[in-house]
Design a protein around this nucleic acid. Structure first.
Lengths: 94, 94
DNA sequence: AAATTTGGTTTATTTTATAAACTACTTTAT
DNA sequence: ATAAAGTAGTTTATAAAATAAACCAAATTT
């Protein structure tokens, strides 16, 4: 009855990042930081985990002279997110 | 936009316990163990946390000669669960 | 009566989340 | 030109959480 929850997505910050990326084609580090309110260190670590899992793609570029980390959700990430949401519903829908 | 998630409920096992208790008036330790698939130690610890938070009430009785730990969700627990679900929707609903 | 099972709790270990400190560079003020 | 402050992060250390392993007391089975 209760479905297992993907531990990679069952994290407030990582879920927040995925949720944002689902709606925006791409987002940079600074934007994700603002939207989530996370510390830079925490965000850096969690972005890394999502990337290593293949849920997001990360591109390091420059905007002018400043470094800029761009994130995009992958197809695999979208699928994982949808599966996570479906599993969650076994907990929260009657 | 993204609402904070009550960390006490944002745990697979504790959320599972709450989800079960929402539907059943009361449930004992053994039943919760079967439904969640958790180890006894983990379940014991998480029940304790939910009780200390006031989200569930725990009554220690005997069924025949065997000890029996009964759990019920409290009004506070129901409210917290509903609030958690609403916060979650800020992540998973478009 | 010894061995096993039941219903747990307590303690130790691993994992995860978070914060603090640091790096590398840029911009601004002096 | 240089010092001070800000930006965009990463790395490392610490705190918290989850989990498993070990244990306990009583009941049941052999």
């Amino acid at each position: 009855m209760l479905k297992a929850l993907d531990p990679l997505l069952h994290s407030e910050l990582r879920l927040g990042v995925m949720s944002i990326l689902l709606g925006v084609d791409e987002a940079d580090f600074v934007f994700l930081r603002q939207e989530t309110g996370a510390t830079a260190g925490n965000l850096s670590v969690q972005i890394d985990k999502l990337q290593k899992a293949g849920y997001i793609a990360v591109e390091k570029t420059f905007r002018g002279k400043m470094p800029c980390t761009l994130c995009r959700i992958t197809d695999e990430g979208i699928k994982a997110f949808e599966k996570y949401v479906e599993a969650l519903r076994s907990y929260i829908d009657k």
